[in-house]
């Protein structure tokens, strides 16, 4: 797996955007700004997914993460009307937390660079498999070929991982019911009980 040319440029662009916005996110004073910046990070990540030909995941990322979860976040932020934080700079927590995460980062990078020295990543990449040619239709452009990513994921999702899939659905259901129960007001409970 090697990205060269414009793809590499795009990778660095998206990566820098993701990291920068992530840093901005954890330092933003307003929660809404945090959410917005997180959205940017997530969208950049979706771009990275496109870069490695995970189109479906990219779509799901935007549809669910950005369109669903983050909207929910913003919704809640507005509901609870969170005030801007007065960041007490250099509190003990901030100091210790910063130092620790610094060490964590150093450690992770060390591991990654160390393993790179071995032959873990230097395996020769075979050529990517040919994408299947679509049907021969004059109304499609001659070079029309379409990724099979979604089809493949669909096939695997509903055959090999059908049990986890069902479990995930159940988890979602439970989460929905739980959230409704949690967020219901007492008055509403009184009405419905």
């Amino acid at each position: 797996m090697k990205l060269v040319g414009l793809e590499a440029v795009l990778f660095y662009l998206l990566a820098v955007v993701a990291i920068l916005f992530a840093i901005f996110m954890i330092t933003a004073r307003s929660a809404v700004h945090s959410a917005l910046l997180l959205i940017s990070t997530l969208v950049a990540t979706a771009g990275l997914y496109l870069l490695v030909h995970a189109e479906f995941v990219a779509g799901v990322q935007i549809l669910i993460y950005v369109g669903g979860v983050l909207v929910l976040f913003i919704f809640v932020i507005m509901l609870v009307n969170a005030k801007e934080e007065d960041n007490k700079m250099f509190t003990r927590q901030l100091l210790i937390g910063g130092a620790l995460t610094f060490f964590l980062g150093l450690g992770i990078i060390a591991i990654l660079l160390q393993t790179q020295k071995g032959n873990f990543f230097t395996l020769a990449s075979p050529a990517p498999p040919k994408i299947e040619q679509a049907q021969n239709n004059p109304n499609l452009s001659p070079s029309h070929n379409i990724s099979q990513n979604t089809i493949k994921i669909g096939q695997e999702l509903y055959t090999k991982t059908v049990l986890p899939f069902e479990i995930a659905s159940l988890v979602l259901l439970v989460a929905i019911i739980g959230a409704v129960r949690l967020a219901r007001e007492r008055k509403q409970e009184k009405i419905y009980d």
């Binding site: 479906f56 995941v57 799901v60 990322q61 669910i64 993460y65 669903g68 979860v69 929910l72 976040f73 809640v76 509901l79 609870v80 994921i153 999702l157 986890p164 995930a168 988890v171 979602l172 439970v174 989460a175 929905i176 739980g178 959230a179 409704v180 129960r181 949690l182 967020a183």
Partner: peptide
Amino acid sequence: IFVIVVAAAEAVVGLGIVI
């Protein structure tokens, strides 16, 4: 995809608790 789904579930419940 599963991680995203679980994250969504987690966010939903977590935010329910927050509210």
